[in-house]
Amino acid sequence: MPESIASKIHSNPKFVKLCKQRDTLGWILSLIVCVMYFGFTLMIAFTPDILTAPIASDSVIPLGMPLGVGIILMSCVLTGIYVFKANNTYDPIMKEIIEEATK
């Protein structure tokens, strides 16, 4: 890419802001996944009794089961949130930034 376009994009405050926003969203969502998953993992490791306690007194279903399935479903939802946000908010701004630098 020509040096002039590169420096134009780099010095565009919109670009710096966009990268920061997109990175922040990515890291926050990653953090949510890690907290859910390692929370689950730490319960397996240190409090298995809580994790495997039945969800109701007349049920054999352990608490870990809805939690595990919940993590799977949340993973799908979070990927959906990221894709929606990136497609509808970030991509148009990035397109503008590139157009401004190349015209």
């Binding site: 859910m36 993590i71 993973s75 990927t79 990221y82």
Partner: peptide, 11 residues
């Protein structure tokens, strides 16, 4: 085996 996938997307 599933939670690696959102991490791939976000990073």
């Amino acid at each position: 085996w599933l939670v690696g996938w959102p991490i791939i997307l976000f990073t």
